[in-house]
Design a binder for these strands. Structure first.
Length: 828
RNA sequence: GCCAGCGUGGUGGAAUUGGUAGACACGAUGGAUUCAAAAUCCAUUGCCUUCACGGGCGUGGCGGUUCGAGUCCGCCCGCUGGUACCA
């Protein structure tokens, strides 16, 4: 084993050689092997926007570190990579640069793939997927037609942002201060027919199965549960008085607070509610008001923060219990898409209703009295929103929330005016996009047969890639050769759907396709049974709700189609924080980006990888620092020199007892660090502390070397450095690849098992005890670890550093925490 | 607005189950080496106070629980992500 080594750390040479070795040996090609435990590690695939940014580097380094660690644990690892290739930015680039979205996208993919390869990620590139390729999206189209046949898909009208100048639908992101970002025109809400997938049919299961996700962060599960938003309430009906049209005799509302029903003083309906439209037909002022409210973009945040405005319709609702008539208002904050588009308003016990009532001088009627609190709430200051005892509620007076709920439910049920209802905040998934660069929706509209799914044999519906592109909507709508087709059912002339799918469709099942991406006669094959579910998924926290919920939903749809056998797609989830510079998110528009390529050229991939792992724990945001990158480079140079100048010696079989104290200490440090780092990589996934601990061990080796250079000393150093090189191998794989050979090993570091701590080296006979007086640190003492609590207490009380604080006091209590501390509680 | 996080030295962060606050780095200061510089190495480095020994304060703010709180609870402030057509 005569591995020569350059005394200087030359990252470019080292990295080229290691990458060449991996390529020659096809080290990362993943093969199904039922005899071996698999580990599927997946990082969220990138949108090919042009070049990698630091967020990608961080995401993919985390994934690579976890993959390489599990490989060392002996698992059969699959780590694939692909491209979330459809999306809006390609269309914007097309308009700006006169380049077709397809060409732009493929060029970006080529460039970014090169960057990923330079970073040395252990991907099986044979499984690469680009979602814009028909081999991929054809199965999405096929699956959608399956969902149609199962009744899990339907078409309905839904609102979009319409730019009246560019004559195009705008994404929420493209509406800035209520205006189209290119034209500057005031946006309008427009209702158009769109396709929806019934995610609400799975709402309960999506909620219940969160419990199965033991490997997910609590915060993500909480956010998803709140998003699904299950509530139990009552759906009840008000009558409508003075109505001229018998179709609108009833007004349905949903409430989770039926106990406040007798406090209703008005009813609010959405601007698009039939009653609002009915009233507006005879009321020009109301029509104007409704028209004005239509210039707000279709985003919940805008709806919720805008000034709450309303107008009396002149219509009256009839209370289902008291028969009292209350005004019906149109209110801009009532959501058309949630519940029935109408809400009963109880200003005394709901803050938003209270504010609205104050503004429009509507009655505030208290019907709930706080329990165990004689002070009546001051309803001139705010609503009282807590639960309590009913008052001013006639026959329901004196009941508490639960009793009132039951009593009112029974009353409304008997009178056929309401029933118990479970509601979800979650809305069905609108998948239609009026855009070009996406998967064509595989549906044909025929005047005779209605909507007809494209038959299996005619799939895929291929998106034409050579197109002229401008700002006025999808080019597909101007391509008769695309949309003029014969109806598959009657053969008559028909029109192909020109809308495309939401790109969340592609990212909802790519993880499954990676298991069998070359399968050409179906969506998924048997190989998914081996690889799924994904053992570790890594991606940005910004995907905590939408992407992760859609993917969970899609997995259940595929399960119910018999394509996968598991209930959930991702066993363990790590949500990575953002990369910031000067306190804000790195972005092109802010001009604070750092080019990974320039850094790799200057320091090498290993330094860049190490910095992203060392600077912060993976789930926190990471503050960019040039000098800290420099520091990582310095550490690698220093460690390289220490190893290269060291003469490796094999550690003889020895008894720990034959070592001197310093030798014992270094071996203790080596093996205790190994235990800690193993825990950091595996359970904790705090790679920053794993690196810090490794640095500490290197510092200990340096100090040890100053006074020790016998053959046995060198062997102990060899052991320590070998452990360091193995522990750092997942983070700096090229660096470790080279040094591992130098340390006298024949097998490459990637095929070397993760080391195990030597329990004998971890034995200690003493322990450090902290001495406190009244909780304040007053001393430390190293004691034999066989001392019992009584001996510890005695020793603490007599210790000099304690004595001076307790001499003129009375000892009240002594708290002994074995192996940790003694706290003496005294009073003057 | 609503949901979920986060807030610790000059900076990034550590403190894993309520038990030594500031590990490991960066930066800074001083020194060694050098003709000089780079590189490297050594020392110091939370704040206030003291000649020194030492003492006091200190984890966004206010309060609480506890022998003991960065950690648990309540309220408040600030920042970040998401908010269904950015991905």
């Amino acid at each position: 084993m005569n591995h020569s080594i350059n005394k200087q750390y030359l990252p470019r040479q080292v990295e080229t050689a290691a990458q060449q070795y991996w390529q020659d040996h096809q080290s990362f090609k993943a093969k199904e092997d039922s005899d071996r435990e698999k580990f599927y590690c997946l990082s969220m695939f990138p949108y090919p926007s042009g070049h990698l940014h630091m967020g990608h580097v961080r995401n993919y380094t985390i994934g690579d570190v976890i993959s390489r660690y599990h490989r060392m644990l002996g698992r059969n690892v699959l780590q694939p990579m692909g491209w979330d290739a459809f999306g809006l930015p390609a269309e914007n680039a097309a308009i700006q640069n006169q380049v077709a979205p397809a060409r732009w996208t493929y060029a970006n993919i080529d460039y970014m793939r090169k960057q990923l390869k330079q970073l040395g990620f252990a991907y099986d590139w044979d499984r690469e997927i680009a979602t814009c390729h028909p081999d991929y999206y054809r199965w999405e189209q096929w699956f959608f037609t399956r969902l149609i046949s199962k009744g899990l898909v339907y078409k309905k009208e839904a609102e979009v942002n319409w730019d009246p100048v560019d004559q195009t639908v705008l994404a929420n992101e493209q509406v800035v201060d209520g205006r189209g970002w290119r034209s500057g025109a005031l946006v309008e809400r427009r209702r158009i027919p769109q396709w929806f997938i019934r995610i609400t049919a799975y709402a309960q299961e999506l909620l219940d199965d969160l419990e199965k996700l033991q490997g997910w962060p609590e915060q993500v599960k909480t956010m998803q549960a709140n998003w699904i938003g299950r509530s139990e309430g009552i759906e009840l009906e008000f009558g409508v008085a003075d109505q001229s049209d018998p179709r609108y005799a009833r007004l349905s509302v949903y409430t989770t607070r039926p106990d406040t029903l007798m406090g209703v003083t008005y009813v609010a309906v959405a601007t698009q509610h039939p009653l609002a439209q009915l009233a507006a037909a005879h009321n020009p002022a109301l029509a104007t008001f409704i028209e004005q409210q239509s210039h707000v973009k279709v985003a919940e945040a805008d709806m919720a923060t805008m000034e709450k405005l309303g107008m009396d319709t002149g219509l009256k609702a009839v209370h289902p219990v008291s028969g009292r008539q209350v005004p019906i208002y149109v209110a801009n904050f009532v959501l058309t898409s949630y519940g029935s588009g109408a809400v009963m308003s109880v200003p005394a016990h709901d803050q938003r209703d209270w504010e609205f009532a104050r503004k429009y001088n509507l009655e505030i009627r208290q019907v709930i009295c706080p329990i165990g609190n004689t002070a009546t709430p001051d309803l001139s200051k705010a609503a009282f929103t807590g639960k309590g005892i009913l008052i001013n509620s006639g026959q329901f007076d004196g009941l508490d929330f639960d009793a009132a709920f039951s009593a009112l439910e029974a009353y409304l049920h008997q009178n056929n005016k309401g029933r118990r209802q479970v509601n979800f905040r979650l809305r069905d998934w609108g998948v239609s996009r009026q855009r070009y660069w996406g998967t064509p929706i595989p549906v044909i509209n025929c005047n005779k047969c209605g909507t007809v799914p494209v038959p299996d044999g005619d799939l895929p519906v291929i998106l034409p890639e050579n197109v002229e592109f401008d700002a006025t909507g999808s080019p597909l709508k101007k391509m008769p050769e695309f949309f003029q087709v014969d109806c598959p059912q009657c053969g008559g002339s028909a029109e192909r759907e020109t809308d495309t799918f939401d790109t969340f469709m592609e990212s909802s099942w790519y993880y499954a396709r990676f298991a069998c991406r070359d399968f050409s006669s179906g969506m998924l094959d048997q190989r998914t049974d081996y690889w799924l579910p994904v053992d570790q998924y890594i991606g940005g926290i910004e995907h905590a709700i939408l992407h992760l919920l859609y993917a969970r939903f899609f997995h259940k749809l595929m399960r119910d189609e018999g394509l996968v056998t598991s209930d959930e797609p991702f066993t363990r989830l790590l949500t990575q924080g953002m990369v910031l510079k000067d306190g804000s998110k790195m972005s092109k528009s802010k001009g604070n980006t750092v080019d990974p390529l320039a850094l790799i050229e200057k320091y090498g991939a290993d330094t860049v990888r190490m910095f992203t792992m060392f600077a912060a724990p993976p789930d926190q945001s990471l503050e960019w620092s040039d000098s800290s990158v420099e520091g990582c480079y310095r550490f690698l140079k220093r460690l390289w020199r220490i190893v290269a100048e060291h003469q490796p010696k094999k550690l003889p079989r020895l008894s720990q007892k034959s070592l001197n104290e310093t030798q014992k200490q270094l071996r203790f440090k080596t093996h205790s660090t190994l235990e800690k780092v193993t825990d950091d990589y595996g359970r904790r996934q705090t790679f920053n502390t794993a690196i810090a601990a490794s640095m500490e061990l290197v510092n200990a080796v340096s100090r040890f070397q100053e006074t020790h250079d016998s053959d046995l000393d060198k062997a102990i150093v060899t052991e320590a450095l070998s452990v360091v090189v193995l522990m750092l191998a997942p983070v700096v794989p090229h660096f470790s690849h080279e040094l591992w050979f130098y340390l006298g090993n024949e097998k490459p570091v990637i095929d070397t098992p993760w080391p195990q701590a030597d329990t004998e080296a971890l034995q200690r006979s003493t322990v450090l005890i902290v001495l406190q007086v009244n909780g304040k640190l007053r001393g430390k003492v190293e004691v034999d670890n066989s001392l019992d609590n009584i001996a510890l207490e005695k020793l603490a009380l007599n210790h000099d550093s304690v004595q001076r604080y307790i001499s003129n006091t009375r000892v009240q209590r002594v708290i002994v925490v074995p192996g940790k501390l003694v706290n003496i509680v005294v009073s003057a």
